[in-house]
Design a protein around this nucleic acid. Structure first.
Lengths: 164, 164
DNA sequence: CTACATGCAAAGGGTTTGCACGACA
DNA sequence: TGTCGTGCAAACCCTTTGCATGTAG
């Protein structure tokens, strides 16, 4: 269950390098916001990251946290969990199935695969809690979105009007 | 890619029965809201469901949609996609890994499993779009939450204060 | 020095709640 | 008929944006 990642030190160094290479400024805030996400075992929400960073950078503001997180996602240094965009999506399919999630529009399609239905839960997972379901989540860009990829938006929006 | 589910007719019937057995009233709105989620191939958000139902029940209100969706989740007739609660969660782990999501508090833990890293993407999925990542999502109740399961809350909240 | 990043405060949008009316059992 | 469900509108909370100030390069 040990994360097979380089140490936090190394990651911070590579991160700063990445910022420089992308031509954006390496600020105290950006370093600390990234550190906060990178060091946490679970996957914090913006508010939690904010509180953590505030311990070290008392003047940081919540909107800087949001702006930075989005920038880091654009640079490929971070990801969000689950469907993108802030809306909750509902699923009435109570049969074994799996998901293809479009990272652009957030639309999610079911697919069926017997092999995936039979995944064996590793013992290590049982020590985390009681398991209810297991499914495969595949993320990518759906056909509709790759077609209309004419204008690459400079910045993705968390809560957009898209998605049916 | 055909859903291996019973027809919509059957599901509606089982649904109404389920409501009766749970001792809640079988209203027009509840039937139509469930139908809207059940018939849709993708996984709609509340607003989309609302618009769909409004075509058949013009007086329905958005808050009834929310209340009903939550009730159906409590009754086990529906699920949400991704972490519960409305907040976006961030992930700095760019190495292959998988997720255990607690359905109660929304906390998400990484775990590692070489077998899961090697999942073969089914051909059928490629027709949905271009694939970027594939990971296993296991849902259940984490240890912390099963311990403090003293008081079963009558109604879960979408946006709660919990989660670190 | 100059462009880019930050902080502030206010707006925005999705979700929830209190209350009085309406409808299932 | 009584109780539970609904609609309305206002509240709430998370997230985003405009603008003036601060700072990395």
């Amino acid at each position: 269950m040990q994360p097979r990642t380089e140490g936090l030190q190394e990651r911070m160094k590579r991160f700063a390098e990445g910022l420089r290479r992308s031509g954006v400024k390496v600020t105290h805030q950006r370093l600390e916001i990234f550190r906060e996400v990178a060091k946490s075992g679970d996957h914090p929400d913006a508010e939690t990251i904010f509180r953590g960073v505030r311990g070290r950078v008392p003047t940081v503001s919540l909107d800087t946290v949001y702006r930075t997180l989005w920038m880091l996602i654009d640079l490929g240094q971070l990801d969000t969990l689950g469907p993108p965009h802030g809306r909750v999506r509902f699923d009435a399919n109570m049969n074994p199935h799996h998901h293809f999630i479009c990272l652009k529009c957030g639309r999610t399609h079911d697919f069926y695969n017997e092999e995936f239905d039979r995944l064996r839960i590793p013992g290590a997972v049982k020590s985390l809690g009681s398991v209810k379901t297991a499914q495969v989540e595949i993320r990518g860009i759906c056909l509709r979105c790759s077609k209309q990829a004419k204008t690459k938006p400079k910045r993705r929006r968390l809560r957009s009007k898209e998605g049916k």
